[in-house]
Nucleic acid binder design. Structure first.
Length: 422
RNA sequence: GUGGGUGUGGCCUAGUGGUUAAGGCGCCAGGUUGUGGCCCUGGAGAUCGGGGGUUCAAGUCCCCUCACCCACCCCA
């Protein structure tokens, strides 16, 4: 066992895993472009207060899952635990309020949460997310949901279920929490230990409890949608109408409550059909209060974040990861003798300028060893260059994964011979 | 933070308390001087996660610890 290893909960993406990641990233880029979203790249580190104000110092993320530290100048900084706060900070800092609204952003990058690792949960995780800022209409919520749906569909994940809920305003939640507490109070003693704890700390979470899912008091609990005011109700109604019009299937789930403080009104999650532990692939919601919270003008906004690792897990589970195309090597040079290495270097360079994908062989190894390694690389051709070939300006073109017989040909003719036939 | 499971070369695995820890995959080399894939031969590579203990003897039993996996919790 190596004594040096990646930090706990953090993973290397090895070259053999990269094609899958690139595949996902490209799907994200293409989807965002189709909806006219623009990439924003914010620092991986922010002032700690950016996150504390956004996610709430009381939330788990804010209170115990942040990688916070003091830099040499004494500033309190933190590795970003999520994407929205940084985007909103940039929006406010750069005075984007004066740009024509709405504004559409997307991001793709690593995030950090100090949490105990398990399946689908990592201390460094990657997310693709979008933010639509300055559009208060229900159509904006649905545009973002539809973008997310389209992203998954492009990857072949067409069986995810969309669950939605509305959690209204902070005021709605306050009233609802009160009602919920009142409803559950007589039954606290019969709930699980975790739920008893949550009764004090975070009542909403009881609705999410695995242990108490079948508990009569939990099943008969009031739903937050019944506590929405007229405007929030109308908004949610409209969201559902648009989803229906688009033919996007969804289920109402009154148990989606959210750990982050900044969400308002519509919240949603995409989950695989056989939902297990860390199964949510991506989740989003409206956050009409956040921009003001971070020092901007009151501005409505909506967005989602989606975990790349969880997407990768789902693609692998469904056998969708193998189908990803890897561009094959066109040729491998095989230098032999005294003059081979120079000739190989020159030919390889020339072929690459012609747009071909060429691996240069390692001088000094036997022909047999070089051919073996060339064959394993999946290359279409081997280009054998020894003293004889160098002297007469030719090369032995040997098909490996391609059709045909080996033949000698002038170096100048190689680019044409290697041209891929479509 | 809580609970359960698992740690043997790069990977997968074998190994009733008893010589130098075995095999497969992979890697390297060779099977005559320049021709891959199949086959054959050889080689490199493991202080059996780490530390303590029991024993004449520990990969094997006990304790501690670390890591990974899984679940809770939490979250996207």
């Amino acid at each position: 066992m190596a004594d040096l290893r990646a930090p706990r909960g953090m993973h290397d993406v090895l070259p053999e895993d990269s094609p899958l990641w690139r595949h996902i990233r490209r799907a994200a880029e293409r989807t965002a472009a189709r909806y006219d979203y623009h990439e924003i790249i914010t620092p991986i580190v922010e002032d700690e207060s950016v996150f504390l104000r956004a996610v709430g110092a009381e939330s788990d993320i804010g209170s115990k899952e942040m990688y916070s530290f003091e830099d040499r100048g004494g500033d309190r900084l933190a590795l970003r635990p999520e994407g929205t706060a940084g985007v909103v900070r940039a929006y406010v800092e750069h005075g984007m309020a004066s740009r024509p609204h709405p504004l559409r952003f997307w991001y793709f990058g690593p995030f950090f949460r100090y949490d105990r690792p398990q399946a689908g949960r990592y201390r460094q995780l990657w997310q693709f997310g979008v933010e639509l800022i300055g559009d208060p209409t229900p159509a904006a919520d649905v545009e973002v949901m539809d973008l997310q749906r389209s992203f998954y569909a492009e990857l072949g994940l067409t069986d995810l279920t969309l669950r939605i809920n509305s959690i209204g305003t902070p005021e709605t939640r306050r009233r609802y929490v009160e009602a919920l507490r009142e409803h559950l109070a007589p039954h606290v003693a019969t709930l699980s230990k975790d739920s008893q704890r949550r009764f004090e700390t975070n009542v909403l979470r009881i609705l999410d409890s695995k242990d108490d899912a079948g508990h009569p008091a939990v099943q008969s609990a009031p739903a937050i949608v019944d506590y929405l005011d007229d405007e929030d109700s109308a908004h949610f109604e409209a969201v559902r109408g648009y989803l229906d019009a688009l033919g996007i299937a969804y289920t109402l789930d009154p148990r989606i409550v959210r750990g982050l403080d900044y969400y308002t009104r519509t919240v949603w999650e995409f989950e695989p059909p056989e939902a297990g532990g860390q199964s949510t692939v991506g989740a989003g919601g409206r956050y009409d209060g956040l921009i003001q919270l971070l020092g901007g003008q009151p501005t409505p906004a909506v967005g989602f974040g989606s975990g790349i690792e969880r997407i990768a897990i789902n693609l692998r589970d469904r056998g969708l990861a193998e189908a990803i195309e890897v561009v094959p090597v066109d040729a491998v040079t095989i230098p032999l003798g005294e003059a081979g290495p120079t000739a190989a270097l020159k030919l390889a360079s020339r072929l690459r300028e012609a747009g071909l994908l060429v691996r240069n062989g390692t001088p000094g190894r036997s022909l047999k060893a070089q051919l073996r390694s060339a064959g394993n690389s999946g290359a279409r051709y081997a280009l054998i260059l020894g003293d004889g070939e160098a002297a007469e300006g030719t090369v032995q073109l040997k098909p490996l994964a391609a059709e045909g017989d080996q033949r000698a040909l002038p170096v100048a003719d190689v680019p044409a011979a290697l041209k891929r036939t479509p």
